[in-house]
């Protein structure tokens, strides 16, 4: 019996692809946060200050996102401005730019 078990092919569970996928998802998130926690917060505050002088802005309607890449990084700023006057559609200011990094 023991001999039989020795030669029997044990089912192998390939767990490495799971590890790889979990890491890729986790690090994509962590890099976005840690990649510039100070910088992102500062940028958001300054944008709120500048745009806020012209439009009433809600804090959570300003999104600042930095994606770190090998060749270049992308800074994405998305500002949703509330409806102005009588039911005009909300103008959306969207800016995106690449920066070396």
């Amino acid at each position: 019996m023991t001999l039989f078990r020795f030669f029997a092919r044990r089912p192998t569970r390939t767990t490495a692809p799971v590890a790889r996928e979990r890491l890729q998802i986790l690090l994509a998130h962590e890099r976005a946060v840690a990649g510039g926690s100070d910088l992102m917060a500062t940028l958001k505050e300054e944008i709120l200050g500048v745009i806020g002088r012209h439009f009433p802005l809600e804090r959570d309607k300003v999104q600042v996102k930095l994606d770190r890449g090998d060749a270049f990084s992308t800074l994405e700023i998305d500002i949703e401005v509330p409806t102005l006057g009588q039911g005009n559609a909300a103008p959306r200011l969207a800016a995106a730019g690449g920066a070396p990094g």
Binding site: T12, R13, T14, T15, A16, A19
Partner: peptide
């Protein structure tokens, strides 16, 4: 172990950390 898929391969680690 890497060949058997039980351990991250060299290329996996390199791709993640670049």
């Amino acid at each position: 172990r890497a060949a058997r898929g039980e351990m991250l391969k060299v290329d996996d680690v390199l791709e993640i950390l670049s």
